[in-house]
Design a protein around this nucleic acid. Structure first.
Lengths: 180, 180
DNA sequence: CTGATTTCTTAACAATTGTTATCGTTTTTA
DNA sequence: TAAAAACGATAACAATTGTTAAGAAATCAG
């Protein structure tokens, strides 16, 4: 969906053996809010959400599906505690890589290093656009955009997560859906 | 405020003669939405807002003040049309630099190149946080955060720009302010 | 200095969303 | 498979925000 995959380019293939394949049940937390990220992930099968605790309320703010890279980027890179949880929604098959190995790959391949930096840049633009959609659109419009551009999300993700993602309550989302 | 300055480190000083100092009146557009960015800016005095036209409505989404770098990053870097306008709010004194010279500096100084890439990374985190505040907080809370963390904005920027930035109408902002 | 514009407030009403609670239905788990 | 938990729809009412309009105050421009 709105996520930029960790491109498995030709270049990456030479390093694939350094990834570890892991299977997780649904609702498994891969990284807990407040902890320091030690691994980055790549989804082979399944889906994941990012969420954090906001005064006792579970706030979901991003979804990831097959062939997308997921991590708490700033925690993974800088060693700060993660601001959010990374949690499976469905049972999932994940490739994981340690910090040490990841940065070793970056050092040994300028091509990959470059592509990762490009990824930071693109992700910045992505978040800028997400932020803009919050400013310009009301919840109903944001729901319709989601319906138009990422219908798969609505089919795979429980509705109250989506409500949270849209910035409204589950009740309000249910109303919007049944208002034609 | 919430912007990451283009750090004028020691390293930068050797290149300062390549910048051009320009003076602008209030409400001057430095880059128009839809045009390709040819210059990046650094504010010596004054302030600037970023805004775009949304169905005829003027939507402001970021403010910049003294000692901050401003540009339509993705347009400046990739040559795509800018998604927004860059406009002075007050009469301003600006350092400007052309694309050609800017990237020449990046090529001649690995230190600066590195710091710019670091800037992309930090700006990504910045936009991520902005986006999160849209999800977790209601307009009133966002106004109070602004009041607490960036009181200078409220003193220097017209209120309807701030309302737009907070994602509400000027009328609603006026009500929030006068509701104690 | 004066008329025009911009900026902010307030009012009245409509529309939307939040809150709380209830009730089937589906899914999970022991 | 049976009990428990999760999920989604709906209702009733409160609170918030949007819309439109009018008017006062401040600022700008000639």
């Amino acid at each position: 969906m709105q996520q930029l995959p960790l491109t498995i380019s030709e270049e990456w293939k030479g390093f694939m053996h350094l990834f570890k394949e892991e299977k997780y049940a649904a609702k498994k937390i891969l990284l807990r809010e407040g902890e320091v990220s030690k691994k980055a992930f790549y989804i082979l099968k399944g889906c994941i959400r990012l969420w954090f605790n906001n005064d006792g309320k579970d706030v979901t703010f991003q979804f990831f599906f097959e062939d997308e890279g997921v991590s708490s980027v700033e925690s993974f890179k800088t060693g700060q505690p993660s601001l959010f949880n990374i949690e499976t929604i469905e049972p999932s098959v994940i490739l994981s890589i340690s910090k040490k190995v990841f940065f070793h790959i970056l050092d040994s391949s300028p091509i990959i290093k470059n592509s990762i930096e490009e990824t930071y840049f693109k992700r910045m633009i992505f978040y800028q656009k997400l932020f803009l959609s919050r400013i310009k659109d009301n919840p109903k419009k944001r729901y319709e955009d989601l319906l138009e551009h990422y219908p798969q999300i609505l089919q795979r993700v429980p509705q109250h997560y989506i409500a949270s993602y849209l910035g409204i309550t589950p009740v309000s989302l249910s109303r919007i859906r049944n208002r034609n």
